[in-house]
Simulated scan of single mutants.
Amino acid sequence: MRSALAASVLLALAACGAPEREEAPRAVIDESWPTIPEGAVFGQVSAVEVDSHGHVFVLHRAGREWEEPFPAEPIAEPTVFMFSPGGALLAKWGAGAFVMPHGLSIDAGDTIWITDVAHEQVFAFSHDGEEQMVLGERGVSAQDDSHFGRPADIAFLGNRVLVADGYVNTRVAEFDRSGAFLREWGEFSTAHGIAVDEERIYVADRENARIQVFSLEGELLETRSSPGGNYTYGLATLGGGWLAAVEGRDGADRTGAIVRVYRPDGALDRSFDVGLEGEGASLGHDIAIGRDGYAYVTDVYGNRVVRFSLARAAE
């Protein structure tokens, strides 16, 4: 089905004289990272984050593909993999917990927060996968203080939990750490990714092909349009106002995986291509930055997570 769609897109692009695909420098990907044990079910990799110990948590759909209406049964295989900094699989959990897992974020206490767009819920888990809290009513979509509309991603600001909500709703929903609703703000067309640094909140306003930048109180400060009108899927802060973003589609709606690094003033510093060759082969979805300086990007269509240095491009 996907190959037929890709062929149709290519024909349409050829007919309308779409611009050439961007030629960004290729990132130097660590081809040995991670190690997936033989027999492990791994695929449709949606989200990635690094904890305080350098463990890399990867959320995937174990071979399930995004098709609507979503199925009712949960994914039977583990969907959360924890890798060592060197790429060894240390733990896996989440079997039977999710239908369409989407976002994964880790707070300062190493609690694992996960969104499920089919369940319409946000979950908090201990480091080893014990469920601690659930926000939202299972299977019920609404925009109020106890429901979500396909929640996509999560970020943290002190005692506040910020949910990019998401595909159906058009807001950021804020809660305290006990799960009490605080407020909602913003207006987006698919609030797909959210990240926070010392002074700002960044939201990937995906279908508007832009990144919105807010104060810590939620006041809009700046709008950053992607070069070429590309669609930003995931964000990660680098400290000091620097920001990394991954784009999953270009301005002509062709899928791929382009990583951007933005300076504190919003100017583009550099770009990398981390996608696989061929239309429809990759869909960059999320990005995380480790304390060792490595960037990690999930590729939904490529069924993979890649590691690379933001400072290096292929010669």
Score class of each variant (00 low, 15 high):
residue 233 Y to H: 13
residue 99 V to A: 06
residue 182 L to T: 02
residue 110 D to W: 12
residue 200 R to M: 10
residue 191 A to F: 05
residue 110 D to C: 09
residue 170 T to M: 04
residue 118 A to H: 04
residue 233 Y to R: 00
residue 157 L to R: 07
residue 173 A to M: 08
residue 142 A to W: 08
residue 180 A to Q: 00
residue 229 G to Q: 10
residue 130 E to Y: 01
residue 176 D to R: 01
residue 116 D to A: 08
residue 212 Q to K: 11
residue 123 F to G: 02
residue 110 D to Q: 06
residue 146 S to I: 14
residue 219 E to A: 13
residue 138 R to D: 13
residue 209 A to Q: 13
residue 187 E to T: 08
residue 136 G to M: 13
residue 156 F to Q: 05
residue 232 T to V: 15
residue 104 L to F: 14
residue 158 G to I: 10
residue 221 L to S: 03
residue 97 A to Q: 15
residue 153 D to L: 13
residue 234 G to K: 02
residue 192 H to G: 04
residue 173 A to I: 03
residue 208 N to E: 11
residue 199 E to W: 00
residue 150 R to E: 15
residue 232 T to W: 08
residue 219 E to N: 07
residue 125 F to N: 00
residue 221 L to Y: 09
residue 148 F to T: 03
residue 224 R to L: 15
residue 150 R to A: 15
residue 137 E to Y: 07
residue 143 Q to M: 14
residue 126 S to L: 11
residue 177 R to H: 07
residue 158 G to Q: 06
residue 217 E to M: 09
residue 132 Q to D: 08
residue 208 N to V: 03
residue 209 A to V: 00
residue 101 P to H: 05
residue 140 V to C: 10
residue 119 H to W: 05
residue 206 R to V: 08
residue 187 E to S: 09
residue 111 T to R: 12
residue 231 Y to N: 00
residue 163 V to N: 06
residue 191 A to T: 04
residue 201 I to T: 09
